[in-house]
């Protein structure tokens, strides 16, 4: 997985609440058994003028300058709620988003971000709204920095705010770790658990299948 330490970039305010993963990537845009080829379908229902078309809706934030090059997204509460589809995160990542600031996230989505190199920054709604106003006042000059090492967000106008992220998530993002490899270091504990549990809850252990 790609590492994340610090990023200074254009930030796009999409201040809607309850942005669901069906909106981030509509089901009809998940066309193949693949984690790639999804950027075009990102926010398709909002980004394009009509369903199925590719004619851009000029009002949608990611179709406007300078936000076509945004790498940070700002949004409202419960961002990424709804369907578990990891395609939402793959689409955001492929399009170029590396960090999302929101007061809260859908929990499956939040986990999916961390596993794919996108930082979910949980931060107060007042901070997000303040930032959005400043971005609109100076769209071309304003830059936002997400510093994962120090857990701070700062603006090109000099202010900064701390944010919290669980240690394990932070480490996974900073180091770009493969979570399966990390867990398999504890294989002895997993096998020991299974041996204990087999005695306690034998009904859990179904017979091996004939292939």
């Amino acid at each position: 997985m790609e590492k994340f330490t610090r990023l200074t970039a254009i930030a796009a305010p999409l201040l809607r609440i309850n942005v669901d993963t069906d909106a981030i990537i509509p089901s009809r845009e998940m066309k193949r058994v693949s984690k790639t080829g999804l950027a075009e379908g990102l926010f398709a229902g909002w980004r394009y003028q009509s369903p199925g078309s590719r004619a851009e809706n000029p009002d949608f934030i990611l179709n406007r300058e300078p936000w076509r090059k945004a790498q940070i997204l700002l949004s409202g509460i419960n961002f990424g709620c709804g369907s578990s589809r990891e395609h939402a995160v793959w689409a955001l990542h492929e399009w170029g988003i590396r960090a999302i600031l929101a007061p809260s996230f859908g929990s499956i989505f939040q986990g999916n971000c961390v596993r794919n190199g996108i930082v979910p920054v949980v931060i107060d709604n007042a901070v997000i709204e303040g930032l959005a106003r400043k971005i609109e006042a100076d769209p071309h000059g304003f830059r936002l920095t997400v510093d994962l090492e120090n857990c701070r967000v700062s603006s090109s106008q000099g202010e900064s705010w701390p944010f919290t992220i669980p240690d394990a998530d932070r480490e996974m993002l900073l180091e770009g770790l493969d979570s399966i490899a990390v867990t398999l270091k504890r294989d002895a504990a997993i096998l020991a658990y299974r041996d204990r549990d087999r005695v306690r809850r034998p009904w859990i252990y179904l017979p091996a299948r004939d292939k």
Binding site: K35, E86, G111, N112, R115, I180
Partner: peptide, 10 residues
């Protein structure tokens, strides 16, 4: 509970 595909692989 519901998980993502990468967690599914894990």
């Amino acid at each position: 509970w519901g998980i993502g595909s990468t967690e599914g692989e894990h």
